[in-house]
Design a protein around this nucleic acid. Sequence first.
DNA 1: CAGCGGGTGTGACGCACGGCACAACGCTGG
DNA 2: CCAGCGTTGTGCCGTGCGTCACACCCGCTG
Lengths: 232, 232
Amino acid sequence: MPIPIPILQGLKLLDQLPAPRLEELSRTLSERRVQRREVVVKLGDAGGGLGLLIEGRLQTVSFTLDGKEVGTDFVDAGDFFGELSVIDGQPAPEYVIAVAPSRVAMLDRDRARELMFSTPAGAAAVAARLAERLRRSATHKAVLALPSSFQRVCAQLAALARPAGSDGGLRVHVAPTHQEIAIMVNTSRETVTRTLQFLLGLQVVAREGHDLIVLRPELLRQAVDGSFGPTR
Amino acid sequence: MPIPIPILQGLKLLDQLPAPRLEELSRTLSERRVQRREVVVKLGDAGGGLGLLIEGRLQTVSFTLDGKEVGTDFVDAGDFFGELSVIDGQPAPEYVIAVAPSRVAMLDRDRARELMFSTPAGAAAVAARLAERLRRSATHKAVLALPSSFQRVCAQLAALARPAGSDGGLRVHVAPTHQEIAIMVNTSRETVTRTLQFLLGLQVVAREGHDLIVLRPELLRQAVDGSFGPTR
DNA sequence: CAGCGGGTGTGACGCACGGCACAACGCTGG
DNA sequence: CCAGCGTTGTGCCGTGCGTCACACCCGCTG
């Protein structure tokens, strides 16, 4: 089924495209719906095309050298993914998995390269996206390198929390499971549970349905830099 | 002082450039020599230009949220660095420090953007470089996420070792100090020392001047995936 | 309603490793 | 040749947290 042009215009790579090109893409692209947990790109896939995320949320997941899962980054609606293989022709470095029901479109390799490199606007969009990913990767490393598990969990919570709609409060919308958090910050599920219990007990965070709301962001920040925690 | 054209042609961003452009750059660029430990780009610098590494080796260093140093990546001769600020205009996300005596050239922001985006070849070079950095960043994360310090040190050694000239042996040329390794893999200097002692004792690696040679790469690999180590 | 599976909460145990303290080495420069 | 500093080697101590084991809760489906 074709994809409506207004939707295509909402995608970062395509928002500068002239109308005729958009129309052509609209006719030839087709959309795929994926459910939570479904795999969109497999680790090691070579020659895959470029993915465009129309709606939903994806996560990139990879593995340590000893086989344990490591969460790495997220893909939000409007972003594209799978660029690395398109750029350098190497196999995909990680899995891409849906964390929420999503709609994606795949663009074959040759047309993707053409969009990415033939115009300065396309090139700039690609560079901007890669730069964004690198910066996030760096901050994620800064989290991973924190000495204690407690700090890492707090840091990850702080990173996941986004300003909520109404007041200025922070909230983690549909919080990940403890297991998923553990994977992101390289610790055990039990430690995540214990950390969360600690924070709930001190009213630093609170549960609200499937969301987690941050009541005292400043304490969370102190927890990250070590000046606040279980052992005094 | 002007930079000879053959040297400019050895740089990844410039190797496709037509002769007249090269000549102009040769006249206007000037080279700076830096010593080991000298800072080339400061964390937080905004509006900095693009750096070109003519000779030597640089390292990017950043800090955890609680203020500890984290080694992140290396820049080798021919690579450029400081792209992120040029691309997105944000402050530099990390320090860039020389780990060996080096020669660098700085290119101002506007001319860098022109080189990077005005031609498909330039755009492809930039994308390729960013893709390379992202892939390395991902493998570094895979190292950081290993459960035990011992494994992380071994993994880092394996990553640093490159095929040596003569035979097929692996060698770490001018090995980093234990402290530097500790920073890269998020552990303590003492643990690095102990791990290295362990490996030296079992003849897995050996010292040769300032180099470290890997005598038994297969054991090193087993050490990484946990099937070989101090506690059996 | 029972039965099930995925997620969460909690206790107990053991050990790897971070931190400290100090000794020993190997340079560089005076 | 000695002083001084950066790096390496090692013992010891305390503890954070990974792991195992098990109970509980909730939302399914039949």
